[in-house]
Amino acid sequence: MAAPNAEQKKRTGLGALASAGADEDFSVIDAIGGPRGVVESMLPGVLFVVMFVATNNLNLTVAVSAALAVIQVIVRLIQRQSVMGALSGLIAVGICLIWAWKSHEARNYYMFGFLTNTGYAVLLAISLVARVPGLGLVIEFIRQLPTERFGAWFHDWMDDKALKRAYMVITALWMGLFLARLAVQVPLYLTDHVAALGVARLIMGIPFWALAIWVSYLIIATPLHRHKAAAKAKADN
Rank of each mutant, 00 (worst) to 15 (best):
A166E: 05
G21K: 09
D159H: 06
I74D: 03
G113S: 07
E105I: 00
Q81M: 10
C96Y: 04
G151A: 08
R36W: 07
V132H: 13
L202I: 11
P4A: 04
D159M: 02
A230N: 14
A210E: 03
Q81A: 13
V122C: 12
S27T: 06
V129P: 05
E7A: 14
D159Y: 03
Y189E: 08
D160N: 14
M168F: 04
V73Y: 08
D23A: 06
L137W: 04
G37W: 09
L163T: 06
L68Y: 05
R107Q: 06
I126C: 11
V186L: 06
A16Y: 13
Q144E: 14
V70R: 04
N237I: 08
M1D: 11
A180K: 05
R107H: 05
W209A: 08
A229G: 06
I220P: 11
A235F: 08
M168V: 03
K9E: 15
V62L: 05
L182H: 12
A106D: 02
A200V: 13
G21V: 08
A233K: 07
A125Y: 15
I78Q: 10
I91P: 00
L58H: 05
V75S: 02
K9V: 15
W214Y: 14
S27M: 03
D23Q: 10
N108T: 06
I98Y: 15
F52S: 12
F114R: 07
I206D: 02
P187H: 05
S216T: 06
H155Y: 08
N57A: 13
L179C: 07
E24K: 14
L123P: 00
G136K: 07
H225I: 01
D159C: 03
W157H: 03
D236C: 00
K10Q: 09
S19N: 15
L173V: 09
A180D: 08
A22W: 09
A183Y: 07
G113V: 05
P187T: 04
P44F: 00
T171I: 03
V194A: 12
W157K: 04
L58T: 04
F112R: 02
I91L: 14
A221T: 05
A233R: 10
F112A: 14
V73A: 07
